Simulated assay, not measured.
Amino acid sequence: MDSFGHVNNVVYLRYLEQARVDWMFETAREAGVEKFSLGTVVARHEIEYKRPLVYRAEPVRVEIWVTKIGVASFVCNYEVRDEDVVYATANTTLVPYDLAEQRPRRIAPEERFYLEQYLQAK
């Protein structure tokens, strides 16, 4: 919380991370895709704050979808929102990463298939 009682901008990154980790690791694993959890790194974040989110006990919803799938990267977009209020929009560029080799890797076919299920236009 900042000095005005609003959720701090760094907390928004945590919200995005929580949604992304759940979607890429838990939901993907349930769908039979485990490679994301073996190595994926953030290459870029961009957040546009639309409205202040006043600190509260109730959770806020983070919606996530894919807007671009490349050969070795993909982009996720988000909305941090309640039913009728959007507090922020954001996007993250993610790169599959080979932790053992310490280098980026290409998106595997099963990862691409999983991502395509969430592909939407901006």
Rank of each mutant, 00 (worst) to 15 (best):
F74K: 01
P96F: 12
A72Y: 06
N91V: 08
P104T: 11
V95M: 09
D84S: 07
P109S: 14
V80E: 04
Q102A: 14
R103C: 08
F74C: 13
Y97W: 11
R81Q: 03
E83K: 14
L99M: 14
V95E: 07
E116I: 12
P96K: 04
V86K: 06
R105I: 14
P104C: 10
R103E: 05
L115S: 00
Y78C: 01
A108H: 08
E79Y: 13
C76T: 10
E83D: 13
R105M: 13
P109M: 14
S73L: 03
L94F: 03
Y97T: 05
V86T: 09
V75G: 03
F74V: 08
R81C: 12
E79I: 05
P109H: 13
A90F: 08
N77A: 09
E116V: 13
A88R: 04
E110G: 01
V71F: 13
V71D: 15
E101C: 10
V71Y: 11
E111H: 03
P96Y: 07
C76N: 09
E110L: 05
A88E: 03
P96N: 09
D98W: 04
Y78H: 06
Y97V: 08
A108Y: 09
A88Q: 02
V86R: 05
R106L: 09
E111N: 03
E83A: 13
Q102D: 10
